[in-house]
Design a protein around this nucleic acid. Sequence first.
DNA 1: CCCATTCATCGACAAATGTCAATCTATGCG
DNA 2: CGCATAGATTGACATTTGTCGATGAATGGG
Lengths: 127, 127
Amino acid sequence: MTFVQQPLQSSPALLPLTDVTDAAACGSSVGRAAIAPADAEALARSLKALADPARLRILSIVGSHLDAEACVCDLTDVLTLSQPTISHHLKVLVDAGFLTRSKRGTWSYYRLVPGALGGVAQVLPGL
Amino acid sequence: MTFVQQPLQSSPALLPLTDVTDAAACGSSVGRAAIAPADAEALARSLKALADPARLRILSIVGSHLDAEACVCDLTDVLTLSQPTISHHLKVLVDAGFLTRSKRGTWSYYRLVPGALGGVAQVLPGL
DNA sequence: CCCATTCATCGACAAATGTCAATCTATGCG
DNA sequence: CGCATAGATTGACATTTGTCGATGAATGGG
């Protein structure tokens, strides 16, 4: 079970835990193991894709449509950004596994990947 | 009810919704309103603070301690980063409202802010 | 076949970010 | 007081990131 869709990355196990070798001097006792460095990097990549106002708005706009689908023109109408910039953000979100793209005719339609946001949300409180 | 502790920012309402003026040409129908630009920026700030492997590991290490408390030396032992860099990341997490700092003697102890991570996690799937 | 439309890609640029070495500030101990 | 230790700050640097204008690729219509 992976904690989030990561199409262009290796499938990260759910917090596989690091070594519990404590041996600190001033430190307090360790209750459980922390996140593995590789998983921290994978999760950080997902969060980095989300950590932008424009991209959050894009996800929200796509999700707010009845069919959970939106084309680029839906976004250029609302966002105060150039069309290339919006395309760039869309690419980031697709690469990170939060959106899918399907081209029909001249238009590109973007959809939310079900559970992608939830996957990230599920891991966070467990840190 | 705010969606996440944001000590140095204004208190953002929970997805206060933008205008539902659709009027698009190619676009599909709108089911509900999207996130407000100001809230997107606030949420992005929180996510930006989390979107770094070192900071995720720091949060996880602090949370993995039995008393949910750790000093800087606990982190310098484990992370392969210089002490100033770790102090920098700690400051970012404190400023974003995910950690609190309490100095006792020569040591600085950091604690997780209860519910801070959960607050972010709660909002994400609702986008 | 030519042109308009939709969107992606490229190149350039300024701003933000992560990192470290050097330094500064407390605090505790002889 | 003098020194050692823990940690924060500063300054510098390379890398990454967000943005745009210009251009390219594909599709549909007259």
